[in-house]
Amino acid sequence: MNSSFFSPLLWSPGLTWAAENSDGATAAEPTSSLIAQSAVKLAEASQNLAQNPVGHAWWFWVILLFISTFLIGIFGVMAGIGGGVLFVPLVGSFFPFHIDFVRGAGLFLAMGSSLSAAPNLLKSNLASVKLAMPTVLTASGFSIIGAFLGLWLSSLNPAYIQGSLGVLILMISAFLFFNKSAVNPKVNPGDPLTLALGLGGNYYEPNKDIDICWQVHHSKKGVFIFMFVGLLAGMFGLGAGWAYVAVLNLVMGTPLKVAVATAGFALSVDTNAAWIYFNKGAVLPLIVVPSLVGIILGSKIGSRLLPKVKPELIRKLVILVLVIAGLRSISKAFGV
């Protein structure tokens, strides 16, 4: 067995360090540096796997899945994009599983990573059930259509899905790279849908020791965009994490902290596409369970590390990994 395939295991000292220090007050630099190294290792390991992705015992892939999803969990939470968007292109491109099973697992991961973080986000009042509910209803409704569309396209030719997934991932990478979030966007109160749904709330800001009241605007536009997001999320098994924060923050004017937290909660609610894949038989426990456990443990550590790292650095590293995975997905579609 190629020893370089075990390179992901070398990440463990950094992760142990991060876990041991997750409750303590630590400086941002060492944590960011360790995470940066881990992200580079993830990309390197992915490239190694691309060169020889088959010929290993089943347990090798299960262990590697667990380690990979553990790291995806950490990065997904810290970058505020959810695990699904990283999992599907990476595992779909570098693991031997068919893209149908990877997309099925991706939806469970998108849900699982946020399920573990959601209780704390709700209790801290950072996540807003009020804000999540109408957006989730729209996204989850359209994700059902997306799930059927994705499975149908894949039955015609899996390369259609693999190729368009690669293009979508590259577009998401570009979107994440150029997207400039606003910490506290200025809103124009009085939007009828916002008032009808009471889309606002309050949260405690420890840095300023004050309660901050907020509300959103352009709710109709936001809900409309979530239809499209839901469709893509169900079609490619990505979950909607990659778009939630941006739409809530940039379109609807939600404060960044609330947008990130609400996205984390909302993804745990959006389970409809997962049910479709489950019922169609596109769910293999051997892929889903280690991935879920890995991402949930990773997300727990990621949410604790969140206040101690530089989100911009994490974001850039995640974008780099996405670009690699997107290009690999496209090349796989062409049989390369």
Binding site: L115, S116, A118, P119, N120, L121, L122, K123, N125, A127, S128, V129, K130, V187, P189, L195, G198, L199, G200, G201, N202, Y203, C213, W214, Q215, S268, V289, L292, V293, I296
Partner: peptide
């Protein structure tokens, strides 16, 4: 003027129940 909204109190019950169910499901899994 910006209208003041508050969070739904139901979200605390949701968070508490969710935590318990996630823990149970992890054990079962």
């Amino acid at each position: 003027e910006q209208k003041k909204f508050t969070n739904l109190h139901e979200q605390m019950a949701y968070g508490a129940l969710l935590e318990k169910l996630v823990n149970v499901s992890m054990i079962v899994l």
